[in-house]
């Protein structure tokens, strides 16, 4: 089973890297970019779990390691 975890900064948390990327896009001539927030994507391959058990385990992984829940949100997708 494959799963994808997406970790993003919570609203209101300053993202200087996103701002730098936004500035760089503007300097490349991309007009109309009103905001960039940078995040992380983790692709996981899981063995021997049904979708529900996998989701529960992925939630634990996010809470314990993959995300810093002080500043980050996470989203879990079961891909196949």
């Amino acid at each position: 089973m494959k799963a994808r975890v997406t970790v993003t900064l919570k609203a209101g948390v300053l993202d200087p890297q996103g701002q730098a990327i936004e500035g760089s896009l503007a300097s490349l001539g991309f007009a109309g970019v009103k905001g960039v927030r940078q995040g992380k994507v983790f692709d996981l391959v899981l063995d021997g779990l049904d979708a529900e058990a996998a989701k529960a385990q992925l939630t634990q992984m996010c809470e314990k390691l993959l995300a810093n829940t002080v500043i980050e949100n996470y989203a879990i997708e079961i891909l196949a």
Binding site: V13, L14, P16, Q17, A20, N68, V70, I71
Partner: peptide, 16 residues
């Protein structure tokens, strides 16, 4: 901070 012994978070410097 990451171990939860102190609160909050330490993020990338604003200057990058």
């Amino acid at each position: 901070i990451e171990a939860g012994l102190l609160p909050g978070a330490l993020m990338r410097n604003t200057s990058l």
